[in-house]
């Protein structure tokens, strides 16, 4: 479970941005997460509250935007939706879909004051 390190990573970004952009508090954090990023949204929420306690983001709202997975089939060349890494191509049934979206794990925006 590396959700703890992910949350520590989020806090580091918040602290760095607070210094750069001159805000004191973070009230909301919008994350974009793909289904192939290897993190569980629920576990992340749980860790987030614990990790930000006593920081500039204590009590901040965590909003998780789930990005759909997408890929290109290497066999039929179609752009296809991907839910799991080992799913076969929904068009031709072949394996070997190259992932183009779904591995995202990033902070999109912040609500600050």
């Amino acid at each position: 479970m590396h959700e703890m390190s992910i949350c520590e990573g989020i806090l580091q970004v918040l602290e760095k941005e607070a210094g750069r952009q001159g805000f004191q508090r973070v009230k909301g954090v919008w994350l974009e997460i793909g289904p192939l990023a290897g993190v569980e949204a629920e576990a992340l929420r749980f860790c987030f509250d614990a990790v930000v306690r006593g920081s500039l983001a204590e009590g901040a709202q965590l909003e998780i935007i789930e990005i759909p997975g997408q890929g290109v089939c290497l066999q039929c060349d179609q752009s296809v939706p991907v839910r799991q890494r080992f799913d076969p191509c929904p068009v031709c049934g072949g394996y070997g879909v190259r992932i183009t979206h779904g591995e995202e794990l990033r902070i999109k925006e912040l609500e600050v004051e």
Binding site: I6, V13, F23, I107, L110, E111
Partner: peptide, 13 residues
């Protein structure tokens, strides 16, 4: 609101 668009594992990377 501030847009930041930053990878969370950016520091590790």
């Amino acid at each position: 609101m501030v847009q930041i668009e930053q990878d969370i594992l950016g520091k590790n990377d």
